[in-house]
Each structure stands twice: as C-alpha cells, then as structure tokens.
C-alpha cells in the first residue's frame, strides 16, 4: 500500500487538476467572447471610444491583491499564521475594491455616452468585463470563506488540527491559483480592449 501512496504523490492532486481544467473552460468562454468581438468588429459599423481610466486603477488593485495572496500562501507554508491571516484579509479587501472600481468604471463609461445598449463595441466591454467581475466575485466569496476559517479557534488542540489539515493547505493552493488566474485574465482583457478599440 505504501508503494501505491508514494506513486500517487508524484502526480498532481486530482482536485487541483480539475481546477486547471475549470480554468481552461473559463478561458474558452472568454476566447469565445473576444473572438466574437473581433469578428463583429471586422464587419464594420463600429463605434470607437476611450476606455475609462478607472480600469487602470482596478488593474493595479487586483495586481496588488495577487501579490498579497502570494505572500499569504508563503506565510501559511512557513506556519506564520498571523501574517497569513493579515495578508489574506488584504487580498480580500483588494478583491472587493476591484469590484467596486469596476462598477465605478462602468459609471464612468456611461458618462461618456457609451451605454450597455447601443453599438455592440460598448456592449461587449460591459458584458465581458461584467462576466469577468462575476468570476472575481466567486473568488471574493472563497477568500471570505478562507478568512473566516483563519480566525483562531478557542480550543488550542482544535486550532492545531485545523492548521495542519492537508485539505486546507490544498485549498489555499487552489484558491491562489484561481485568484492569480482571474488577475491575469483581467490583464489580458484590458490589453485586448486597448488594442482592439
């Protein structure tokens, strides 16, 4: 039995693998949307406009939150639990700020006269960034869940057991993969919108 166990450790954990596949499906969805954007743009009757500057701020915020989560994961692995909790909280705040900034950016865009209804060039920006924000929101909910779990338990034995729980270590690794992914996805979308106005 021990040989079986050893052999399996060399493979990627199935749940983590499933997460990567799930990321693949999200990539396919946004690839579908952005290629629809390109196809539609090539057909003409396309209104060009400047992106709202708040999009650049939100990019900065989600980038910083990714860095915070990177160090949070390191802190967890090094058993620095207080530091882990603080950095996780910072990531969570970053995620919430990102969504608020995206909303503010849509308001900014609307103030330019580019509305959800109207020429598809604007509709695409709203729908694609909106779907991205929905994926960020999913990440924020998970971050909140992990943050609540990181609050120390009154019973020290229970606390120790939960700290060394391999399931949680796996969860943090997966959360961090997902969070970096939604950050990179946003960077791609921003570059895409900037390039194909």
């Amino acid at each position: 039995m021990s040989t079986v166990t050893l052999k399996r450790t060399q493979r990627i954990h199935p749940k983590k693998f499933a997460l990567w596949l799930g990321i693949g499906t999200v990539i396919m969805m946004f690839a579908g949307l952005t290629s629809a954007f390109i196809v539609r743009r090539a057909a003409g009757n396309w209104v060009e406009f400047e992106l709202p500057p708040l999009f650049y701020f939100s990019t900065l915020v989600i980038g910083l939150s990714s860095i915070a989560l990177f160090f949070a994961e390191k802190a967890y692995k090094a058993n620095r639990h207080l530091q882990y909790r603080n950095l996780l909280g910072l990531t969570l705040v970053g995620g919430i700020t990102f969504i608020i900034l995206q909303y503010a950016a849509w308001m900014q865009l609307a103030s330019y006269g580019i509305l959800l209804r109207g020429n598809p060039s604007g509709s695409f920006v709203y729908v694609i960034s909106g779907l991205h924000a929905a994926h960020v929101l999913g990440g924020v909910v998970l971050l909140g869940f992990f943050f609540v779990r990181a609050i120390p338990k009154p019973d020290p034995v229970q606390e120790l057991l939960s700290e060394i729980n391999p399931e949680r270590s796996l969860g943090i690794e997966m959360l961090s993969v997902y969070w970096h992914f939604v950050g990179i996805l946003w960077l791609y979308l921003l570059l895409f919108f900037t390039y194909y106005k």
């Binding site: 499906t25 999200v26 396919m28 969805m29 946004f30 690839a31 579908g32 949307l33 629809a36 959800l116 209804r117 109207g118 598809p120 509709s123 729908v127 779907l131």
Partner: peptide, 19 residues
C-alpha cells in the same frame, strides 16, 4: 463554454436592449 457565451449575449439582446 463557447455556447454559454453565445447564449449570454442572446439573453442580453432579449432582455437588456443590446444588439
């Protein structure tokens, strides 16, 4: 996922006035 994108855009056209 690509069908989902198509269906989401169709829902926007039907209910939120996009074209």
């Amino acid at each position: 996922p690509v069908l989902l994108s198509g269906a989401i855009l169709l829902l926007f056209d039907r209910h939120l006035g996009t074209s």
